[in-house]
Design a protein around this nucleic acid. Structure first.
Lengths: 310, 310
DNA sequence: GCTAGTTGTTCTCCATATCAGAATGAATTC
DNA sequence: GAATTCATTCTGATATGGAGAACAACTAGC
């Protein structure tokens, strides 16, 4: 699809930041981005969030530039948390009046909140509102949501419900059991598929060519030394995953973390996955008579059987 | 602030739809909206969501009309769930090419997903992503989130964590206990303050003039026969709430539902509320030696004491 | 397989909306 | 109270958005 970009990702990520997930909001801001907005990034430092932004959708033939400016402001506001007009104007190399016009428009429509005292702007919870509405209409969410909490209680570990969107895994639910580790995931956050158990559970049941597309689009960035970074290796692993019936992430995403995930299928269509994450110390890697595996697969089964309840 | 609008709301809402919360997504679409976009609504039928949209922020002096078009498309897409180019063009009285340009721009930036097979567009989970990030940085959420689940387990009922934004209550967390009723609330959804326990818990600790502003802005729509609809009545109720230490909603929002809420204050600043909702049959309205009240107030206290853990 | 009807996408050109820059106003600091 | 900083408003040159037309890709009917 966009092989230049895919290559760029691999180049960057292999030399880049390994280990723990980083919430992009807190990352240092990149000074050196291209001016035009229609060209890709021309310097060296890449952020995960920027790469993702660049990857999304196909290039629009007739982009609405004004809307893009607004979206840039939204993205920057999201990165900075809160900001003043001048800060944003400097950051985006725009005039203050332009920034002001965009901000007041976004504010009028409820997407941005202005603090009159400090004269700062921030994104509003309208995003959570819209996001919540979208989520609440996803079938698998309606069916699986109660099961996620149950499974968390039962296993005592961290449980996630995930769906695929645009080649990335998106967390729809998150529930912590008694002893759960505290990962920096949040509802709505995205993660690459190849380096996670849930991702592999989903990929394993997607058509081969779609998997290829996803790899083309997002690459196979190395997150820990054990992350799968080659195409062939990935396809072999997906084969093993299909045979096994569930997917495994053995410190491929975060050192010290092991994770198992079961696919959720409605009528042979893969529509998501449910996963249990915990420290390697507690989640044993012998998969026969493994209590967590039993709990997980039972939960996935119940969810699949409940599909008609929607 | 905008008293014409406030009056309009009261007029509409008092004669309007009572009873259960309605997810605006599923509401019938209003045919008769003004053409220009810069004027308010000129006909009779109002939707809740439209009213909220109109209420937000102050009128921008120099609105960016192109951005407004994009936002209109987003709003319509949110209302319809999914739609084709032609549908949106008809709905919004725009040319197909214009709609297409906006959609592909939004898609390129990941806000909209296009289904190539059915040629339909829908909003993406990016909204949930951004919303999730915003939520995860709210102090009270970080502290209170675990307590919400605990309180749900302890009480067995439906528990919410709420903050105020732009004069409305926004649900940040939601957890169902064993016997919990299934309200149509979702994380991120908004609700008027005057007709809910959490809203009154917050209003009771906000400066009087701010309460006045909020009432001006959003009115006091009647949701059930017991909803408070007069300003004086509201101020008396807030007085009682302050004395009592927690707020009560006795079928003021939904018939058959009773709800109690405790304010959460960090250094005398009101920053949110936590609430328990259940059927009138289970939540007794004698507040002395009431088990739910004890559980609720204890939880609120612990949250307030944990504020420095952020 | 051909034709007619739909719908998505691209292209062109001009009315118009956008935004830089200047001017104003409000708030804070020294 | 002068100086500084910043948000906001105003104005005009010009970049750009979008209507409408043309094209492309599909589907349905015969």
């Amino acid at each position: 699809m966009n092989s230049i970009l895919a290559t760029a990702i691999e180049t960057v990520s292999s030399g880049g930041h390994n280990g723990a997930l980083v919430l992009s909001r807190h990352a240092a801001h990149p000074e050196n981005r291209s001016e035009t907005g229609s060209v890709f990034y021309d310097r060296t430092i890449f952020m995960d969030s920027d790469i993702l932004e660049g990857c999304m959708g196909d290039r629009a033939k007739h982009p609405v530039r004004t809307t893009e400016k607004s979206l840039e402001i939204v993205a920057t506001l999201n990165r900075l948390g809160k900001a003043r007009v001048t800060t944003l104007a400097d950051e985006l190399a725009m005039g203050k009046s332009a920034v002001h016009n965009h901000l007041s428009t976004l504010e009028e429509h409820g997407y941005v909140i202005k603090d009159e005292d400090t004269k700062t702007y921030r994104l509003s919870l309208k995003f959570l509102d819209i996001g919540g509405q979208i989520r609440s209409e996803i079938d698998v969410y309606k069916v699986a949501e109660p099961k996620v909490e149950e499974l968390a209680t039962e296993s005592g570990e961290l449980v996630h419900l995930v769906v695929e969107e645009d080649g990335m895994g998106v967390y729809l639910s998150r529930s912590k059991g008694e002893r759960a580790v505290d990962l920096d995931t949040y509802v709505g956050c995205k993660h690459h598929m190849h380096s996670t158990a849930f991702g592999k559970a989903i990929l394993a049941h997607l058509p081969q060519e779609r998997v290829g597309e996803i790899v083309d689009q997002h690459g196979l960035p190395e997150v820990t030394p054990r992350t799968i970074t080659s195409r062939d290796e990935l396809f072999e692993e997906l084969e093993r995953t299909r045979d096994r019936g569930f997917a495994v992430d053995d410190e491929e995403r975060l050192e010290g973390l092991r994770c198992i995930a079961a696919p959720i299928r409605f009528d042979s269509d893969i529509i998501g996955a449910i996963s249990i994450s915990g420290p390697t110390a507690r989640i044993d890697d012998t998969w026969e008579n493994n209590e967590f595996v039993d709990q997980l697969c039972r939960a996935a089964n119940v969810i699949e059987l409940n599909k008609y309840k929607v």
